[in-house]
Design a protein around this nucleic acid. Structure first.
Lengths: 133, 133
DNA sequence: ATCAACTAGTTGCCTACGCAAGTTATTCCT
DNA sequence: AGGAATAACTTGCGTAGGCAACTAGTTGAT
């Protein structure tokens, strides 16, 4: 618990300082970058992120008003929407990347051996997946 | 990031349901139980917990008004204090323990192999220690 | 002995976010 | 086709907690 808070808080501060974005917001952008360019449904984005649906609504509000992402109407479901990166958002993410990876290294990766990195990666993948099931 | 939030949120809900305490509060009690019975300084408690000094002040306020811990004057430093579990707090912690361990198992430990458990334990210990340095 | 520099804890302010209830659209059953 | 049950967001409300500024006590230098 302490370790996870230490890492998260440290990286959050780095992210704020480097880009003005909270770590959770940066993470949303990163998920969106990996998603189809047509966009992704809010519910799916919430599941892939650290937020609940309500938290997601507000994070999307913030990022949208910063012009980093956009909400599009969903053609197949009138209730839904598709969320996608704008080019501004994509650019911001690209520019933030180098410092972001350094931040991961400083706060987390540099403290692990290769074996530990593997173990943590597979184990945490499994835990995250278990929750979505 | 997702895994750590999933685990923390799940355990927090369990803790709330079982005892009415947030996970962070339960953790403070657990740290206090391991501390000398004369108590521990707030700054040290904050360092051993997931909270900053200011967050700690308020968490201590809550737990104190629930009668689970007490603030004592610090004999060696007039600015400081010593925080210690009350017997009510100790009892609450003991009663919560079985369900707490089940919660750890459900959300975390059961998903790991023994090797992974070792790797995570030593690696995270190292990360937490690095931050305190 | 006095005063500056530091440290311990607290508080004002602000924001993020979870939960639960609400709204609108969809699906499914008959 | 029509209406109950369900699903996708949103919003009202409440709370936790970080940061930075504050207060009070301590230490150290002269």
């Amino acid at each position: 618990m302490v370790a996870s808070v230490v890492v998260t808080r440290g990286m959050d501060r780095d992210s704020q300082a480097a880009t003005g974005l909270a770590l959770a917001e940066h993470h949303l952008l990163a998920v969106l970058e990996a998603a189809p360019s047509t966009g992704i449904r809010p519910t799916d984005l919430a599941a892939a992120s650290t937020l609940t649906k309500s938290g997601l609504t507000r994070a999307v509000d913030r990022l949208e008003s910063d012009g980093l992402i956009e909400r599009r109407a969903c053609p197949s479901d009138g209730r839904g929407q598709l969320i996608a990166l704008t080019s501004k958002g994509r650019q911001k993410l690209r520019r933030a990347a180098p410092e972001f990876f350094r931040s991961i290294a400083r706060h987390f990766a540099d403290h692990l051996t290769d074996r530990e990195t593997d173990a943590v990666a597979t184990a945490f993948e499994r835990i995250a997946a278990a929750d979505r099931a």
